[in-house]
Design a protein around this nucleic acid. Structure first.
Lengths: 163, 163
DNA sequence: CGGGAAATGTTATAATGTATCAAATTTTCC
DNA sequence: GGAAAATTTGATACATTATAACATTTCCCG
């Protein structure tokens, strides 16, 4: 069995991208939302790795491809993708990452490696439950959860001990 | 008994401020850190309410008081206060709030009311434990947790139902 | 009181995100 | 099919948040 989650070990990443794009098309079709070429291209760029990408990094790639793009181009596409649950914004990094559980109606929990930069998105029902309980105990109506854990992924952690 | 946590109901807020400043002085003395006038004044400004304050809001108040302040003045003071556990940065708001549990070595969990803007900081050991477990299951070494819940505080929630 | 460290002042600039309005495209509905 | 409405995109300008770099001052310690 694999000891480490996908982002932390070599894998056929093109499969991740293809899957994400296929899911996105299906989700947009189901929601009657228009996954236009720019939006799809931005999603693909975001998915180019498991590291979060800044909006201006996306912009740079678009302009490098010859597209006439400005900041609003990118932010609008990212807003659309977020609203349809296809990407997440990582608040602690001001960056964006492809959603690993698109369409599953989840509360994202992100493990962010400060060494290699890769991010793993978990579902962690136990955590979500504990958060709901804590909010409920204060009579607080939770609507949106930001949960980002910075640290060392298994790979970088084991390497750092072999110095 | 009180049904709502402090930030969500009227209270003698000056007592919060005095307590926070007294704690800060004690903590800095214990750590041999210098709580200079600017740092102390920034902490006091941050504590002027239970709503997070932006760095440039702090800056505006400092300049209004006649201090010759620039962005680095504020960010340096905030960095110092964060390092000594006296304020927290709310990543989802790009703003800062006084630490409600200074010196207690905790993982902050923030309940942020999107209506009134007040923030309650909780300790929630159950949540921290669940997060640690989830990270451990992925062999991830957690170092820093960002946990921010946006929603409606008890007060705003009950008001919104009486429309 | 002198030498080094810490803190502050100052200017400039980087990085991230939005407002606004015009033009083009797509959808809707007759 | 074609006109009106809604959505999407283009383009310019600007707002907000944060940092780099270097000079100056203040404080601590011997």
């Amino acid at each position: 069995m694999a000891s480490q989650a996908l982002p932390y070990r070599p894998h056929n990443h093109q499969a991740c991208v293809s899957q994400a794009l296929a899911d996105a098309r299906a989700i947009c079709r189901a929601q009657n939302a228009r996954l236009t070429p720019t939006r799809e291209r931005v999603l693909e760029l975001i998915w180019q790795s498991h590291k979060p990408l800044g909006a201006y990094d996306v912009l740079a790639e678009l302009t490098a491809e010859g597209q006439s793009a400005a900041p609003p181009t990118v932010y609008r596409a990212l807003d659309f993708l977020q609203q349809h649950g296809l990407v997440h914004r990582i608040a602690s990094l001001n960056a964006f990452i492809g959603c690993a559980h698109a369409g599953e109606n989840h509360t994202g929990m992100f493990l962010i490696c400060r060494s290699c930069g890769n991010v793993l998105e978990l579902k962690a029902p136990g955590v979500s439950g504990a958060i709901e309980d804590a909010a409920k105990a204060e009579h607080f109506k939770a609507e949106d959860v930001t949960l980002e854990i910075a640290g060392l992924c298994p790979r970088c952690h084991s390497e750092s001990r072999h110095d």
